[in-house]
Nucleic acid binder design. Sequence first.
DNA 1: ACTGTCATGAAAAGAAATTTTCAGCGGATG
DNA 2: CATCCGCTGAAAATTTCTTTTCATGACAGT
Lengths: 290, 290
Amino acid sequence: MTTASKTVSDVIHSHLGVLTRAEKQLAESLLDNYPVSGLGSITTIAENAGVSTPTVVRMVQKLGFKGYPDFQARLHLEVEATISNPIAKHDRWAQNAPGTHILNRFADAIMGNLRQTLTDLDTATFDSVASLLSDRKRGLYFVGGRITGALAEYFFTHMQVIRPATTLLSSNSSSWPQYALNMNAGDILIIFDIRRYEQEMVSLATAARKRGAEIVVFTDQWGSPAAKLARHTFRVRIEAPSAWDSSVVTLFIVEALIEAVQNSTWDETKERMKTLEGLFEQTKLFRKPG
Amino acid sequence: MTTASKTVSDVIHSHLGVLTRAEKQLAESLLDNYPVSGLGSITTIAENAGVSTPTVVRMVQKLGFKGYPDFQARLHLEVEATISNPIAKHDRWAQNAPGTHILNRFADAIMGNLRQTLTDLDTATFDSVASLLSDRKRGLYFVGGRITGALAEYFFTHMQVIRPATTLLSSNSSSWPQYALNMNAGDILIIFDIRRYEQEMVSLATAARKRGAEIVVFTDQWGSPAAKLARHTFRVRIEAPSAWDSSVVTLFIVEALIEAVQNSTWDETKERMKTLEGLFEQTKLFRKPG
DNA sequence: ACTGTCATGAAAAGAAATTTTCAGCGGATG
DNA sequence: CATCCGCTGAAAATTTCTTTTCATGACAGT
């Protein structure tokens, strides 16, 4: 066979370029939860992928197999190889990585963090924050520290598209008092502050509270001192097998919040995004293509 | 179903006593190399076991299954459970949250992304990139787009602490040519570019290549055009139940890389970090947790 | 030895899967 | 705007799989 030593996954990847729309759709479906997704009959996988059975036949033939049975036989071999390997037995998803590889240890840790964080997290808090952030009458201010500044920026960039009146505070704390001065009652200050808490953060939070602003804090399980001044606090697990803390779960919550806000204000956001897209497109028109 | 919570293997074992000779022979064959041996058609497994197909039907019905397809469907589920990872098992997650809550839907999606990404990811690529980034003789340049700029910044912030000669390119592409001009042969350009690929990224990558720089690209499963110019490419799953793509898994890989680099250059890094800590303490910008 | 019971597989019948055919549709091109 | 080309899925044709039927043979009890 021409596809001798490569895995079906490899073959699919190497053919992605020559696949048509429906075939790509099928390929995605197969690669998702690979290789188990290819265990069933041609009818089943066609249905799962939302394409017709002829499309399946055409694709597997395009990939170099004689027909669907040929394709499936190959998949079965791969499943067998995977399962029969005692090392891979429990860790198929990291099959390429030795058990002690940093990727695996990281994945374990992050999974634990996510599970723990979600267990501890009150969905009412999440929903309340989403609701606060959806209120367009409130100004939003984002601030983070040395490391968490990137998270604040990420959150800010998205919210800026979704709604007006969003402000990103510089990571440099010397300019913070000026921002606090501009806050109005009902505005929201979103603080990212994990260990090695920044002292200035408390001053900023205090000033914001005096101006009547609500405070939302993303911190770690030990809690930023600024959390005492907050209306809502997200305590996120940040432990990783590393000298550094992990921001993965924090980013996870940020993204979920972005979607929650976007979803609850979709009607208002839609037009806004369209306009913005137009602006981006226009800007690109004036540049030379690469 | 009567055989609800037990595995097929359990069911077979508990029925061994009531099986006839040919059925026992079949059962042995199935348990040998279980559960993969049950992947094929009824004809196949009958042949492998040296019995007739009616024997197979009779046995699976004796075991409590409706017929062979029922039996096989169950086996497929077990194969899937065996192959899939702990990540997929989210039973106890977010107990406080309804199954349809955005947090849970997001968690599902991110878990899938992580699993898929790790499955597709070659650890050799990861290790090669970690090794490249550990080479202090090479200058590092980080660049991202509108959304991914925050990721580039996050990566940069950490690497800046760990090693010298790191540069963060502005998100504004107009300044990129100047950076390219400063690159030397062997320098590394780390590009973050997910869909809505930025056209200028290709120009930058081309310019960097001309200067002899190596390119590492973080992109999505569809692949940034800049990936064609890259020495190494990370294809990360970014799908989320959201109007926006998810950067969680990308951040995961970034953090793992940070640790890998830090770990491989610890001796050199240690002193550097101590010095930096001292500087931070001195300026009282950062405090220890209280 | 006779008889009844049960296991077993060959073969037929039935069901389902796989492949092929073909018409419609939509985007590309002139 | 017309034409072409290739993708796509409905449906038919074909192949394969699954189940049922039934004849045979082994064995236990009479």
